[in-house]
Each structure stands twice: as structure tokens, then as C-alpha cells.
Design a binder for these strands. Structure first.
Lengths: 349, 349
DNA sequence: GTGAAAGCGCTAACAT
DNA sequence: ATGTTAGCGCTTTCAC
């Protein structure tokens, strides 16, 4: 391969505008100490020559790489991609993250890291060393992985912990799982349900417990019992199946179920069909996530929408602000979701 | 922000191993002119110190950036993400591309470019200037956009054109649309169908015409007429609806339809339901793409699977080989798809 | 086979 | 407000 060099460099611009490199650099970085007329002259040269700074060079000298790393769980992400069930978590991350990055001249790079690996730190260190990102976005279950969080805390790189409420290290950012679970529960209570089952997600995800709490709180508030109405799942279809069977064989049978994600809701729907329990007539169902599959089930599922795009967009914002040294919000930043109502909820029989 | 510096650099390794920087560089780049014992000693230091080269620095001096750009159509990609219909084209690209990149120490960066923009070249030039990628993967419809292709041809940067068969510039790589359309058509013919309608995709995509040809060829081979059996679509749901109505109001009515993508197949299914035409009893249906939604339709759709992950993986391979100066395959590289049989095909009534 | 020197494009620190 | 200098971490000459 021929050695490729930057076509137009800061030198060309400087020569063209008849100024020093530094002035061009200042214009690029929007530093205030440049006279408007100077800044215009340089900008004109930049536009004329079609100059775009090389982020490699910017990284080499300055402190910014204009790269943000979005870290996802390797195993689960690859499994989702291979399963082709329409889980669009990564797509929504890209939608929110890439577009926001683009606004600020940043790029987002997806990185897969295995939480269960003995060498998480090494994996992350390698990615950091190679890319020198300006910030890192951690998604569950990484967001609450103590090894990862402590390691990143030591690196001095701003990082956002999506789905975490802890702020000792990094910047916590949640989708308000407790409240959303309460909301879903109240929605069912408002429809007249009293026996509302709940299928929990994997305990490896802190947000699982928060969803359970939200359900419990809403039930308690309405003076309803939750005894024997909680079933453990782990977000997988199979675990949803087991949990649904457990709940639907309970006497008396719950008239409604909330599943902590779409896959487990899908499993519940299937179990109900097998048991000839009509949804929503004999069983109301609400799921979490609102991935594409909720449109296609029979009936379409009422679901708690996780505003992933908006959350990641917000994460990028926080990182860019942190890296500029701007003050960040004090407590836990919260992005609010909503309930997408479809056809899986009806009053109890 | 504190100025972050590389924690462990080539200098540390050189000092630790007691050799010069160049020797370390040679080991990193697997150059042959290093004695095995030397190479082992250096490798030991690298491992001990956990050294990982900075790709920014590698890019600055050398000719490689270890970055591959995957260029997708901005408008369509964002629309797909927002629609949340489960279109997993980008996910499959990541699955195939990221994993293959990782094998070789590369990263893949998704880039959205608007084909219809008057300044495509400028958009691309900016991305190239900023990232200096070692290769670019073009997806339809960019792959056959003459402005893009010529521009990249001048840049001297290896690029793969997915879905293109033209090899004047860049490296063509197809999923064999003609053959796959023939395969689907023959599948229907084997089931006894004679009146097989075809819904074409957007003419902006060259592969649309190839799919039509494949259908025509298979029909001709079986001495079947295609008169009035071709309907124009543009890959959108709405266009599929129009095309399906046109075909299903034809006299005599086709007993089978092939749609050039899943969205148009979904529309056809809906039109058939509205007209009370049972699928597959009165109408067999095959779609292209095999996106997640085919699992969820009633009935699940038999579909031509586009091996996107494999194709992108292959594209990455081709780029890495090109950038190493290795010889590339002569003609058009083809990744073969397959027919995923489900429940939307039956013998005609 | 190995080392020394130069420089990639840019920015921080210091001058002016 | 602008210019000058040094150097980021690495690879590419070119010596030895």
C-alpha cells in the first residue's frame, strides 16, 4: 500500500490563510482568544481547502481523541445478534449515541467486553490503551461490576454507568426502573387487577431488584399482597417459561403478570397459549423493554418503553461535559420512560 | 481534564527488554527480521507490562490506522432504527464485521452518509480525513453510487462494494441475488406454482434488478410466463402494499408471490388478510432478507436469508488482505445465501 | 539482525 | 492576540 498522508493539513491552512499553525489550531478548537476577522479568514481557508483535522494527530498531542467507547456485554450481545429475535438494544444505542456524538465531532465505537472474564480489567485496559477514548459508556451488567467500576475510577477517564444509581465512581444514569415498574403495576391495578404476578430479571443486573421493588411498592400502596407472586427469571426465554408456569399454576391464579423483559413476556404468552389462558381476557401481560417483537406478538404487548436512545444520547452529553470540565448534575441523572399501551391488558375476568 | 498519556509505551517495553524501540516495533508488527529469542524476550516484556500500541500513534507514523469504516445510508438507517421493526442489518454487520476486525486488531466504525446529498464526496472526505481508515465497506445503495465509487477510487484506499458486481473501482462482493431469486422461484415451481408474482425493490439498488432477473430466468427455464406478474416496489411497506394489491387483483390471480424484502412481504401478508386470501393455502409467499420479523408473522415467512454477517466478515478480510498488498480474487466475490423454509409456502389450491 | 535519527499532524506551554 | 518551540508514540528511512 502506498503510504497515505493527510491530504490537507493544518500547515496548508496556515499557509493559505497566512497565519501560524497555532492560530489555525485555535480556530479549530473554538478558543476565544482569536479576533473575529482572523477567525473568519482562517475559517474561509479551512472551507476552501476542505480541511478536516486528523483525530489521530489531535489525540497524539492534545488530550482529546474524540472517541467514546460504548461497552456492552460480549456474550449477551453476540447471542442477541445471532438469535435474530429483533432485540435492538445496540441499534438504539447507536441511534442515540452516534447522532449525539456527531453533533460534537465525536465518534462512538462499540466495544464488547466479557463481564465474566477473569481479566476484565486487562480487556478494558487494552481497549483504552489502543483507542484512548475520551469517555466510556458502561451498560448493564457492567455498570455495577465493581471490578470494572473501580478500575475505570483509577483511570481518570469520565465514564457513565447506565442503569446504576451508585456515584462513588463514574456518572450514574438510570431509566428509573423502580418508578416504571410501579407505573406498570398501577396501570394493572387501575384496570381492576389484584393478583399481579411479577417475573424478575437476572440478579446480576441491579435494575432487576429495582423493578421488583417498584412492583412491591405499588402493590403495598394499594394494600395488595405479593405473597407467592414473585417468580425468578434471568431475562432468558427459558427462564421466563419456567417462571410463567410457576405463576400460572399458582392457586388462585394471578390475573396479570409483569415480565422484566420482552423475551420472558413472550415466553409467558406461549405458556398461557399452551394452557389455553386467553390474553388479555383471562390474563393481562406487561413487559419491559419494548423491543420490536412486542408489535408482532398475538396480541401486541403493552410494554414499558426503555428510552435507550435518549439515555445514551444523554450519556454522551455527560461525558463531553465532563471532559470539558463543566459541572455535572449532583445526584443520579434519570431519563424517564413511558408505558406503551397495546392490547395485552384488560380488566380481569 | 488532566492530560492523559499512554500508560505504557513502546519506550517502556524497550527499556524493560533492553532493546531498541525499533525492535519492539518489529515484534509488534510481526516483521520477520527478528531473531526468535529476541522476539520472545520482547513479547515477554509486552505481556508483563500489559503494553498495547496506541492506534493514534500507529496511524501518525505508519500507514495503518487499524480502523475500517462501514458506510450505511443515513436516511434509511435512521428510519429503520426509529421504526423499531426489528430490521437488524446493522446488527448483522457488526456481528460479522466487528468480530472479524477484532481477530486482526482492527476496529469497525459505523458511518452514516446520505447518498442523496449533493456533497457526498465532501462527507466522505471528511470522514476519511478525520479517521484515516484503512478500508471502507460500502453498502447498498452506496455501493453503486458512481460519485462515491469514483471518489473513493481516487483516494487509493481499499474499499469493498457490497451488493455490487462492478469491478472498475473497488472490490465487488455480492450475495448472489440473481441466483437466490431463482432459487426462491424454483422452490415455488417445485411446489406446483405456475403463476408467480414478483415485487421488485427500489431501482436505486442494483440488486433489485438482479433479483428480478433471477425470477425471470427461473420462470423462463420452466417455460412459465411472467406477463403482468411483476410489480414495482421500493422496499417500503407502503410500496409493498400497492404492489400486492396490484398483483392480487390481477386475473387470474397469482398463486404465489416473492417480495424483494421482508417489509414488502409483511405488507403483502396484510393485503392478503384484508382480501381474505389465506396464506399459504391460497397464496404462497417468500420474502428476501430474513430479518427477525419473519419469525413473528402469521404464518412465519419462508425467506431468502441474506448472509450479511458472513458477507461483512468477508469484506473485512478482503480489505485487510488488500492493505497488506496480498493478491485479491479476480472476479466478483460471492457469498452464498440460503432459503429459510417456514410456513408461508404450500402447493397451490 | 539491530539501532539511531527524523518526522507524521497536531496541541500545550511558553514567548512576544 | 498571535507566533515559536517542543514533543506526544510510533514507524519509516537509513546506518551499522
Amino acid at each position: 500500500m502506498a503510504r497515505r498522508r493527510q491530504a490537507v493539513t493544518i500547515k496548508h491552512v496556515a499557509a493559505d490563510a497566512g497565519v501560524s499553525l497555532q492560530t489555525v489550531s485555535r480556530v479549530i478548537n473554538k478558543e476565544p482568544s482569536v479576533r473575529p476577522e482572523m477567525q473568519e479568514r482562517v475559517q474561509a481557508s479551512i472551507d476552501r481547502l476542505g480541511y478536516v483535522p486528523s483525530i489521530a494527530a489531535q489525540r497524539m498531542s492534545g488530550s482529546r481523541s474524540y472517541l467514546i467507547l460504548a461497552v456492552n456485554d460480549r456474550e449477551r450481545t453476540i447471542a442477541d445478534w445471532q438469535a435474530r429475535q429483533g432485540t435492538d438494544w445496540v441499534d438504539q444505542m447507536l441511534l442515540g449515541g452516534m447522532l449525539k456524538c456527531a453533533e460534537h465531532g465525536y465518534r462512538m465505537i462499540i466495544e464488547l467486553v466479557d463481564t465474566h472474564d477473569d481479566h476484565v480489567e486487562r480487556e478494558l485496559a487494552a481497549a483504552i490503551a489502543a483507542l484512548q477514548p475520551d469517555g466510556i459508556i458502561l451498560t448493564p451488567p457492567h455498570s455495577d461490576n465493581p471490578r470494572i467500576v473501580e478500575f475505570l475510577g483509577e483511570q481518570g477517564i469520565p465514564f457513565v454507568r447506565i442503569g446504576s444509581r451508585e456515584n462513588k465512581h463514574g456518572i450514574p444514569l438510570t431509566m428509573d426502573d423502580t418508578r416504571m415498574a410501579s407505573l406498570a403495576t398501577r396501570h394493572l391495578i387501575d384496570h381492576g387487577h389484584k393478583l399481579i404476578g411479577f417475573i424478575a430479571g437476572s440478579p446480576e443486573y441491579r435494575l432487576s431488584a429495582r423493578r421488583v421493588s417498584g412492583w412491591q411498592a405499588a402493590m403495598a400502596e394499594a394494600s395488595l399482597s405479593t405473597d407467592g407472586l414473585l417468580a425468578e427469571g434471568d431475562f432468558s426465554y427459558a427462564s421466563g417459561e419456567r417462571a410463567a408456569i410457576a405463576l400460572l399454576e399458582r392457586q388462585p391464579r394471578p390475573t396479570a403478570i409483569i415480565a422484566s423483559n420482552d423475551q420472558m413476556a413472550l415466553a409467558t404468552l406461549e405458556v398461557a397459549r399452551a394452557k389455553e389462558i386467553a390474553v388479555p381476557e383471562q390474563l393481562s401481560l406487561i413487559s419491559f423493554d419494548n423491543t420490536p417483537l412486542v408489535h408482532f406478538t398475538q396480541p401486541p404487548l403493552t410494554a414499558v418503553d426503555q428510552p435507550i436512545a435518549e439515555t445514551v444520547s444523554c450519556a454522551v452529553d455527560l461525558i463531553i461535559r465532563a471532559q470539558k470540565g463543566e459541572p455535572l448534575p449532583d445526584g443520579v441523572t434519570t431519563v424517564h420512560g413511558s408505558l406503551a399501551e397495546r392490547a395485552s391488558v384488560a380488566p380481569p375476568a
